[in-house]
Amino acid sequence: MNEYVTLTINGSKVKTPQGTSVLDAALSYGICIPHLCHMPGISPIGACRLCIVEVVKNGKSKVTTSCTLEVEEGMVILAHTERILKARKNIAEMLVAEAPNSRAIQDIALRCGVKEVRYPFRNKDCVLCGRCVRICAETWQSKSLGFVGRGSERHVALPFDKRPEFCKQCNDCINVCPMTITPCPGPMKKGEEFFCGLCESQLSMAENIVDTCVDCRLGEGFNCLRAKNK
């Protein structure tokens, strides 16, 4: 038998088995916290920082990623406070600046309330979310690819940049990558990047229906409530 713990997320009581993360608990109750690097059944790394929440303890609140935060009895979580929404918007903005060539990231950013990107576009092909690395190591037990290099040179690579013989060629690393869906206006060239935001008109319709992100196949259950209380 699983032991259950009760915690409060955004004021509602949530009962969930011990050992689950706050993000999973919230998602199972339909409380939507935006996320990118999280995948169900795969260990969390807290790389994208989109799922940040406030944890209230002894009258003080701390901001942490909810995917790496384990549930505790009597925990008080605030997922959509003004402070969080502001920080999250900023994080989403930086993700778009890093990799504007992804519909998933553009979509998440739109839903986090980003209107324009104030950072210089870097237009990389990777945001180091580690989805490919973790699915390869955990689901397939293959470890064919991983993070290589340090600091700003950190990137995902194959050993010696060659496909190793123990790679199972499952193509899951490509399937889970947020960079595989190009934004609606097409791939963006260097120097011509922009924040898309074309589907903003559809947001009001999509907002209240679960699982209807404009095209967010990656963040399943990702239905980020936009800054409604603002």
């Binding site: 470890k143 991983g146 993070f147 290589v148 290099g149 690579a157 050993p159 010696f160 190793p164």
Partner: peptide, 25 residues
């Protein structure tokens, strides 16, 4: 050398990518 690193990975039972990562780091 690459072939030595492949051997090291086998002998020490460390994933090849781990050896490559450390060598690059």
């Amino acid at each position: 050398p690459e072939d030595i690193l492949r051997n090291v990975s086998e002998k020490l039972e460390v994933p090849l990518i781990e050896v490559f990562r450390v060598a690059n780091f």
